[in-house]
C-alpha cells in the first residue's frame, strides 16, 4: 500500500490510485481527483458520489444498474457525468475501492 498527497491531504492508495481508506476522503480530494480525470464536479456529481459511498459502506456490491435505479441519475446521465468508464472513475473520485462487479 502506498501513500499519496492529494489536495494537501495524505491518503492511502492502492497501486492503481484508488483510496483504500474511505474515511480519509473529503470534497477537496474529490475535486482534485476529478481534475485528473478531466471532470469538473457539480452538485449532481456529489450526489452520485455520496450514493456510491453509502452503498459501498453498506457492504453492497456497486453496479451501474444500482446507480441507474438510485433516483439520482439514470444510466445515460451517469455516463455523461463521469465519461470514459463511469463506475470506475466515480468510485475513484468517491474515495472507495475499485469496483469489482462485472455489471
Amino acid at each position: 500500500m502506498a501513500e499519496q498527497i492529494i489536495a494537501g491531504f495524505t491518503v492511502d492508495v492502492s497501486a492503481d490510485g484508488y483510496m483504500t481508506n474511505p474515511s480519509q476522503w473529503n470534497k477537496e480530494i474529490a475535486i482534485e481527483m476529478a481534475k485528473e480525470l478531466n471532470t469538473e464536479l457539480g452538485e449532481k456529481h456529489f450526489a452520485v458520489l455520496e450514493f456510491l459511498r453509502k452503498v459501498q459502506m453498506e457492504g453492497q456490491q456497486l453496479t451501474i444498474r444500482k446507480v441507474g435505479t438510485s433516483g439520482i441519475v439514470d444510466i445515460k446521465e451517469f455516463y455523461q457525468l463521469f465519461p470514459g468508464g463511469p463506475l470506475k472513475n466515480a468510485s475513484k473520485i468517491a474515495g472507495i475501492p475499485k469496483p469489482t462487479s462485472c455489471v
Binding site: I64, R65, G68, I75, S101, V103
Partner: peptide, 18 residues
Amino acid sequence: KLDIPTVTEFLEMITAGG
C-alpha cells in the same frame, strides 16, 4: 439476485453508455 438485468434493460444500459 446477482443484480444482472433483463435482456431489454441490459440493452438499454448498453445504448445509454453509447
